[in-house]
Amino acid sequence: MASLALKTVARLAQAGRTVRAISTTVPAASGHDDIMEKWPADKFDKHFIDYLSRPEIDGWEVRKALTELHDYDVIPDPKVVEAALRACRRVNDYALTLRFLEALKIKCGTQKNRETIYPYIIQQVKPVLDELGISTPEELGYDKPELFIPQPEYWWEKKWYADYGMDKKPNFQI
Rank of each mutant, 00 (worst) to 15 (best):
I49P: 01
D93Y: 00
C88V: 04
P55Q: 00
T67A: 15
K7Q: 03
A13Y: 06
Q123L: 14
L129P: 11
F172S: 13
R63I: 01
K112L: 05
G165S: 05
A21W: 06
K169E: 09
H47Y: 14
Q124G: 07
G59H: 00
G31M: 02
D167Q: 11
Q123H: 14
C108M: 11
Y72G: 07
L98M: 08
P55M: 00
E37T: 07
Y72S: 09
R17N: 01
D45G: 02
L104T: 11
R86F: 01
D93S: 00
E56R: 00
G165I: 03
N171C: 11
R11D: 03
D73V: 04
A5N: 09
Q123A: 15
T25S: 15
L4F: 12
P76W: 06
M1P: 07
A65T: 03
R99P: 05
P78Y: 03
D143E: 12
A103H: 05
G165Y: 10
L69G: 02
K144Q: 12
I22R: 15
A95S: 05
F100D: 06
A87G: 01
D45L: 01
A41Y: 01
D58G: 00
S135Q: 15
G16Q: 07
E102Q: 15
F44M: 11
D163P: 05
R114K: 13
V26C: 11
Q124W: 04
I149P: 05
E138N: 10
Q173E: 15
D167L: 08
Q124D: 09
F48Q: 00
W160Y: 15
G59W: 00
E82G: 10
T116G: 02
L12H: 06
G109E: 09
D130T: 15
R54W: 02
I57V: 02
R11W: 03
V81L: 08
P145W: 10
V91A: 00
A21Q: 10
V125Q: 10
D42Q: 08
G141F: 05
M36G: 09
A162G: 03
I122K: 13
K169A: 06
Y142L: 12
T67G: 15
Y164M: 06
A84D: 05
T116C: 03
A2D: 09
P27R: 07
A2E: 11
T25I: 15
D130P: 10
R90C: 00
N113C: 08
W39V: 10
P119W: 08
L69M: 08
W60Y: 07
V128D: 11
F100I: 06
A5Q: 07
I57L: 04
I121Q: 08
A103G: 12
C88G: 06
K43D: 12
E61S: 04
K46R: 10
E157T: 12
I134P: 05
K38F: 13
S3Y: 00
G59T: 00
E115C: 01
I134Q: 12
T24M: 08
T136M: 04
E102D: 12
I106V: 11
E68Y: 14
Y118V: 06
R17K: 04
P150R: 14
